[in-house]
Design a protein around this nucleic acid. Structure first.
Length: 478
RNA sequence: GUGGUUUUAGCUCAGCUGGUUAGAGCGCCUGAUUGUGGUUCAGGAGGUCGCCGGUUCGAGCCCGGUAUUCCACCCCA
């Protein structure tokens, strides 16, 4: 009957070493967040579906994990059917067939009746929800950080999982560009600490929006944005083709290509200003970029910050700056962080005119990069036990147990083998497999002298000494 | 959601055009060593070949379905 257990697609277990390494990354990020005055926040894994839907575009809605209602989750559906309430509904297309059978249902039409909760897709929308719910208790500008898992019903591939962690920091209730500059500095600081070489790319949504207006098709903003985002993948001709598919004409396309040519420019800001002469929005985007760079002048960053006019980023709520961080070394070059400014995220929840800006670190991708570049410090191990006590029988067990306690009191991680086993080799083998550097052996001889034999497993040497000496020795060995 | 790919011992993988009893390395267990791991030597255990169905005298191998791995697209951390 034993069935082979498996994991849901796109999820992973983390073994002890992996957990320690992930925590190393998390701690590094958290330390920096705290240093900049951000305060921690945690929100539930589940949100009401109506909090989540419509915030990430159609594509995003599809990637939401929905949670089935509790109890008889088909009840609502059948009741609606039986009572003929279909007629009263404001949108009949969302409802099941009225012939009393559920045969014609599909997932989309049935969804509102069987699910009202979903797993969070990111940390920004739950944060916006929190701000709106606690608007009167919060001191603005509110700076919060949040490091929790998020879920997307995406198809897994390299660096992409269905459950993964984001580490977000946001400032809400201020539209100062100082925040943008601070966030860039935070990116720089974290990745410097983690020893990951990165390039920090920055752009401004206003430029993209102004570009769309400039071509005379402002409604094609999303299409244009998505197309130019692919520049480094499919090249200029590819972008032009994409744009053609979106029904843009030759002169519009050439205008956009001209804009893209600035991607290679050394000083794109000046050229951008020329391009957007006459566009208030475009010029505003330029000015914002300039201001951020001016602020960064005095900060001495370790990693390059580059204007990248092709940087688009999908999330539909960004309105000002958009940033993205890419590793510049190794096999895995995908984005390991991103963020931007959103002027009206809380508006949907009834709190208009609150500007926010934030960034996110992708823990799992940072892990991949660090593994790839071998940047994890050697001192991170699966366990950090310094010494294992071994013994032979009940009296020596009691003695070893007391000795273990004394070592621990001194602040040193110590273990005692829990079972009385005849062979001491078994206990040594345990220490060896767990990479515990020392064992303390307690037999009747040692008990008499009140000392223990300390063996260095790496060197194979051993000597007899008092517990006090052991503590001294292990402290030196840190 | 679309396309390709993977799945054989605990792990990493061989397995020929379909043909006896499915192999290797590592790991695991026992012993050489009744107070010494790691190293060495000798021996041993372990597999419904992802799952369901089909073709065939005969399937790990061929066909269909399904799950899963990894990769690409869409999109994204």
């Amino acid at each position: 009957m034993a069935q082979k257990p498996t994991l849901p697609q796109g999820t992973r277990d983390f073994n002890p070493l992996q957990v320690h390494r992930r925590k190393f990354i998390l701690n590094t990020i958290e330390e920096v967040f705290k240093k900049y005055g951000f305060m921690p926040l945690e929100t539930p894994a589940m949100e009401n579906l109506n909090t989540l839907t419509g915030k990430y575009g159609d594509e995003g809605d599809q990637l939401l994990f929905k949670v089935l209602n509790s109890g008889n989750y088909l009840k609502n559906l059948t009741e609606y059917n039986n009572k003929g309430l279909l007629e009263e509904s404001r949108d009949k297309t969302l409802l099941p067939s009225s012939d009393g059978s559920l045969n014609n249902l599909n997932a989309k039409t049935a969804l509102p009746y069987i699910s009202e909760k979903g797993l969070r897709y990111d940390l920004t929308v739950p944060f916006a929800r929190y701000v709106v719910m606690n608007r009167n208790e919060i001191t603005y500008p509110f700076k919060r950080y949040q490091m929790q898992p998020v879920w997307r019903a995406d198809r897994p591939q390299q660096g992409r999982y269905r459950e993964f962690w984001q580490c977000d920091a946001d400032v809400i209730g201020s539209n100062s560009l100082l925040s943008e500059a601070e966030f860039l500095k935070i990116y720089d600081e974290v990745f410097t600490r983690l020893e990951i070489p990165v390039v920090i790319k920055i752009n401004n949504r206003k430029l993209l929006s102004a570009l769309a207006a400039l071509t005379g098709s402002p409604e094609k903003f999303m299409d244009i944005t998505i197309a130019i985002d692919k520049l480094d993948k499919i090249g200029e001709s590819g972008v032009a083709e994409e744009l053609k598919k979106c029904e843009l004409n030759e002169s519009q396309i050439s205008q956009i290509i001209k804009f893209l040519s600035l991607a290679q420019s050394v000083a794109p800001l000046k050229e951008l200003q020329q391009l957007f002469v006459g566009s208030t929005e475009g010029l505003q985007g330029c000015n914002e970029l300039k201001k951020v760079f001016d602020l960064l002048m005095g900060l001495q960053l370790q990693n390059p910050v580059k204007i990248d006019v092709t940087l688009a980023r999908g999330l539909s709520y960004y309105t000002g700056a958009i940033v993205e961080v890419q590793c510049t070394q190794g096999d895995f070059m995908a984005s390991i962080g991103g963020g931007g400014r959103y002027d009206n995220l809380t508006g949907i929840f009834g709190l208009p005119d609150v500007s926010g800006v934030g960034i996110s670190f992708g823990l799992d991708r940072i892990y991949l990069v660090m593994e790839n570049l071998q940047k994890f410090p050697d001192y991170i191990k699966a366990n950090h036990t310094k010494i294992l006590f071994c013994y032979f029988d009940e009296p020596t067990q009691a003695f070893a147990f007391a000795a273990t306690a004394k070592i621990r009191e001194a602040g040193i991680a110590a273990e005692i083998y829990p079972d009385i086993v005849k062979k001491i080799g078994k206990q040594l083998e345990y220490a060896n497999k767990l990479n515990i550097p020392f064992v303390g052996i307690v037999g009747s001889n040692e008990m008499e002298s009140g000392k223990v034999v300390i063996k260095n497993l790496k060197e194979g040497t051993q000597e007899e000494m008092s517990i006090e000496k052991v503590i001294e020795k292990l402290k030196d060995n840190n």
